[in-house]
Simulated assay, not measured.
Amino acid sequence: MARIFYVNGDWLPESEAKVSVLDRGFLMADAIYEVTCVLDGKLVEYANHAARLQRSARELGLRIPLDEAGLLAVHREITARNQLDQGMIYLQLTRGVADRDFAYPPEETPPTLVLFTQAKNVLENHAAEVGISVALLPDLRWGRRDIKTIQLLYPSMAKMEAKSRGADDAWLVEDGHVTEACAASAHIVSAEGALVTRDLSHALLPGITRASVLELAAARGIRIEERAFTPDEAKSAREAFITSATNFVVPVTRIDGVQIGDGRPGDLTRDLRKLYIDTRRAAAV
């Protein structure tokens, strides 16, 4: 079945879903995005993703053309139109169409809002069973990584460099400390059993799954340390894992070729993945 896209209020087949070559998202990467996971045809953690979208829009002065109810309705409608049982909904919002200029166009310029789906069996993830390897690379992204913009060229470059080194993904390093993965939050479990993850700042995205996993871990009595950690600390950790909306919780078993723990997904990582899926699946809307 051909996918149906949402483009500025219209429902269009993929072959007809287009935006202008003068759209500022295309010309200037002047745009933000969000990804919401779908399980059983329902939206996972939708309210938190919608709230982060609102924050990103405020930070850049972007206008969202739908109100809260309208945005939820569009997410539900695109799920239904594409008969999506498992997968993702991608939303991209740009400042709109204007002649090329570094200065923003007038505030009344209509924004561009696009949504599309990707079907994916998010529950059956081989990487979650065996773990992934990561390569450490310098973090050369712009300074406002807390805003979920479409400026994804460097993460793409880092991903390809990691693959060229035989790794599955990259962990990015700045000033001697890990920030995050190419498209996920990075976590380690210390030798003492504490869950360590980078504290929030402009240096990294406030991950929705990250926040939920920390909440679930704290409820289980796991000590949480929100602080920067070094590559050496990560390599000597008991466990390591990443979190994201599309992968939930995935273990990291090698960092720059160094085996983490016994080289297998750790017990806490496995438990948190199951707990996250069970609780967020039950609460999906």
Results as ranks from 00 to 15, higher is better:
G41Y: 04
K42T: 05
I64H: 09
R52H: 14
E34F: 05
L43H: 10
C37H: 06
C37N: 06
D67N: 06
E59C: 14
V38N: 03
K42A: 14
A47L: 12
L43P: 06
V38W: 00
L66E: 11
V44A: 05
I64E: 03
E34H: 03
N48K: 12
A47V: 05
N48R: 15
Y46D: 06
Y46Q: 06
A57L: 08
L53D: 02
L60C: 07
E34G: 00
N48W: 13
L60F: 03
R52W: 01
L66C: 12
R58S: 15
E59H: 14
N48G: 08
Y46W: 15
Y33G: 04
R55Q: 15
Y46N: 00
H49R: 01
E59S: 11
I64A: 09
A50D: 09
R55F: 11
S56N: 12
P65C: 14
L43G: 10
G41P: 07
L66K: 13
A57C: 13
A47Y: 07
R63H: 13
L53V: 05
A50M: 10
H49T: 00
Q54H: 14
Y33D: 00
V35T: 06
P65Q: 05
Q54L: 15
K42V: 07
E59G: 02
C37L: 10
L60E: 10
N48F: 12
A51Q: 13
K42G: 10
A47W: 08
Y46M: 08
G41R: 05
A57E: 06
E45I: 06
G61T: 12
L39F: 13
R58M: 13
L39I: 13
E59K: 09
K42L: 10
S56F: 04
D40G: 09
R58T: 13
T36A: 11
A57Q: 03
P65E: 08
L62E: 01
Y33K: 00
L53M: 15
V38Y: 03
A57Y: 02
E59N: 12
R55D: 11
V44D: 00
V44R: 04
I64P: 01
S56L: 07
L66T: 13
C37W: 04
R58W: 07
A50R: 10
Y46R: 08
R55V: 13
L62N: 00
S56A: 10
A50H: 07
L39K: 11
Q54W: 04
E34S: 07
R52Y: 09
I32Q: 01
D40Y: 14
S56W: 02
Y33V: 03
R55N: 13
P65D: 14
R63Q: 15
D40F: 08
A50K: 09
S56H: 06
A51E: 11
E34N: 02
A57T: 06
P65G: 13
L43T: 12
I32S: 02
L39C: 14
V38E: 09
V44E: 02
E59M: 15
I32M: 05
A57R: 08
C37S: 12
L60I: 09
L60V: 09
D67W: 07
I32E: 00
V35I: 07
A47Q: 15
A47H: 15
L62K: 03
Q54Y: 11
R63P: 00
L66H: 10
L60D: 03
T36L: 04
G41Q: 11
L60Y: 04
V44P: 00
Y33W: 12
A47D: 15
